[in-house]
């Protein structure tokens, strides 16, 4: 049995993208294992949300005693970039069958968008095979690796302080998001306003700070 060239190409392209995600998924699994709530609920987020930053945000804020409104708001704000992916793919998906128009968006993660947006000129069938190969292989590896982190995390000796990898991961995500001067302004404003509003209960200061940061970024980009 031979593998379809679109599938083969999808697997070849997804592997280099998957490798850097492995430590992220392991740390996320570890954060779930450390959190004082059901591991199963934490792990379910990998499939219910299927987005690492948002899942890490929900897990960490829940464990740190944030209020429900703040957790949900922060988790959703983290995800807003997906509106952009959706808008970019709307014309591409209009040529696709109905089942794919429903399943496809579920798999529309950052990495899938980055890889498949290079294939939008392929035939609809070819695009679909490539997209599903990338999205589904990512999905399977993601679920398994988060579970692995959940199992391995607690076994690792306490002295290794692996739980410190969680704040490091947030710093890494912050650094990755700063790619221009206005985005640096956004980060500084958001950090400062969050600091000032630490006294607001249930960690709602995160939302106040994030909104101020977005405003700061927009203003900075107009100068």
């Amino acid at each position: 049995m031979s593998v379809h060239p679109d599938i083969r190409r999808g697997i070849r392209d997804v592997i280099p993208v998957l490798v850097p995600v492995v430590p992220f998924a392991l740390v996320l699994g570890l954060a779930i294992a450390e959190a004082p709530f059901s591991n199963l609920v934490g792990w379910l987020g990998s499939s219910l949300i299927f987005g690492g930053s948002a899942q890490l945000t929900v897990v960490t804020l829940s464990a740190e005693g944030a209020g429900l409104a703040a957790i949900i708001a922060a988790g959703l704000v983290v995800q807003t970039r997906h509106f952009m992916y959706s808008a970019a793919f709307a014309p591409v998906f209009s040529d696709q069958p109905k089942w794919f128009r429903w399943l496809g968006p579920y798999l529309l993660i950052d990495q899938a968008f980055a890889l498949t947006s290079l294939r939008i000129d392929d035939s609809p069938a070819s695009f679909r095979r490539y997209y599903l190969t990338v999205g589904l292989s990512f999905w399977v590896v993601w679920q398994a690796t988060v579970a692995l982190g959940l199992i391995v995390g607690p076994v690792v000796p306490e002295e290794w302080s692996l739980d410190f990898a969680v704040p490091l991961l947030f710093v890494g995500l912050l650094i990755a998001a700063i790619d221009s001067r206005p985005s640096l302004v956004a980060a500084v404003v958001a950090g400062a306003i969050t600091w000032v509003t630490l006294g607001i209960p249930n960690r709602l200061g995160i939302i106040v700070g994030a909104l101020a940061g977005v405003a700061g970024g927009v203003i900075a980009s107009r100068r």
């Binding site: 740190e64 947030f170 998001a177 640096l184 958001a190 927009v218």
Partner: peptide, 23 residues
């Protein structure tokens, strides 16, 4: 479109401060 671009750096900075200082 422009505002969406600054969501990621803003929310990540807010999370780092809130979890780091207030954690």
């Amino acid at each position: 479109r422009q505002a969406l671009r600054y969501v990621a750096p803003s929310v990540m900075a807010a999370l780092v401060v809130s979890l780091g200082v207030g954690g």
